[in-house]
């Protein structure tokens, strides 16, 4: 009996140790060897494509105020409410004292400079596909933005989702670095894939999630309930979105559907961002969407 108890304790301890080992944050370095120069103007485009301001600007900020990344916008979900943190250049409230390496690890590993997991409300699973050059340009650009001392709000997430270490387990299950759309792609389709599955993270809202909040890859971009509880985010696979590539690109520029209804909801901000990109990028997104598996 005593032996059995000892064995049970041994198993429990081993389980905890293995658990701690596999859920530990990935703090491997992001290689910047190939980056020789950085360009803040290119960084401004990365910033627009990544939609950084749409989440990190103060709620309801418009115009130039959107460049003050003081945070505070709330994101309700099945797991609780997340608040976008201050990522302005303020060295205590924001990320002004971060190194480029820390910034890159946050974006692509979902790990903070203190070595903690970020909740995946921050779309690092998509940003993980960012090139080192884009990260470097973005970092250089964000250094030019204003500082703001507004403190970040604590997330309001209930137990057990509040255990940061558990995010390590979530990452094992759902943090896949592979592209979803594979096969022979044209240069434009590849660029569109980088924007849609990576930097622009279209997939984060347009793909439904399972009970644990992982993307349901069998219904890639096939639409999902709006996490705010109101309305639905549409299916944009070719089975539902039958617009021409020209019409899709025009929608991403002006917000007009082919019937001249206009975008609403969060998509208005997405279009504001995408409209700043070169026309070729919006055409690339349209080309990519035509290569997505149709899901009725």
């Amino acid at each position: 009996m005593k032996a059995l108890l000892r064995f049970a304790i041994f198993c429990a301890v081993l389980g905890v140790l293995v658990g701690l080992l596999v859920t530990r944050p990935d703090r491997s370095e992001v290689a910047f060897d190939a980056v020789t120069i950085t360009d803040t103007q290119a960084g401004a485009l990365v910033f627009a494509a990544g939609g950084c301001a749409s989440c990190h600007a103060a709620p309801d900020a418009t115009g130039d105020a959107k460049l003050t990344l003081s945070g505070g916008r709330s994101f309700p979900s099945d797991f609780g409410t997340f608040y976008a943190p201050n990522i302005s250049t303020d060295s205590s409230a924001g990320i002004g004292d971060w190194t480029r390496q820390q910034f890159a690890q946050a974006l692509t590993r979902g790990v903070s400079p203190e070595g903690k997991h970020y909740f995946p409300a921050f779309p690092y699973t998509a940003y993980a596909k960012m090139t080192a050059q884009d990260i470097a340009d973005l970092f250089a650009y964000m250094q030019t933005l204003p500082a703001d001392a507004t403190p970040s709000l604590a997330h309001n997430v209930g137990f057990p989702f509040s255990i940061r270490r558990a995010v390590g387990g979530w990452k094992i299950l759902f943090f896949l670095r592979e592209y979803q759309v594979v096969g022979a792609l044209t240069e434009a389709e590849e660029r569109g894939r980088y924007l849609a599955e990576g930097l622009g993270h279209c997939t984060e809202c347009h793909t439904p999630r399972n009970a644990l909040g992982g993307l349901d890859r069998s219904r890639w971009l096939a639409g999902a309930p709006n996490p705010s509880g109101k309305g639905k985010i549409p299916n944009i696979t070719p089975a539902a979105l039958d617009w021409s590539e020209t019409d899709i690109a025009a929608y991403l520029t002006t917000g007009f559907t082919p019937d001249y209804d206009s975008a609403g909801g969060e998509m208005v901000e997405v279009i504001e961002n995408l409209a700043q990109l070169p026309e070729a990028d919006r055409a690339a997104l349209a080309a990519y969407l035509k290569r997505v598996t149709p899901v009725p």
Binding site: K230, G231, K232, T253, T254, F256, S262, G264, V268, I271
Partner: peptide, 17 residues
């Protein structure tokens, strides 16, 4: 024109479904 349609619809038009 597009910006104004979008701005107003974002703030004052509810979801379709």
């Amino acid at each position: 024109i597009g910006d104004n349609c979008g701005t107003c619809h974002k703030a004052y038009r509810g979801p379709k479904n």
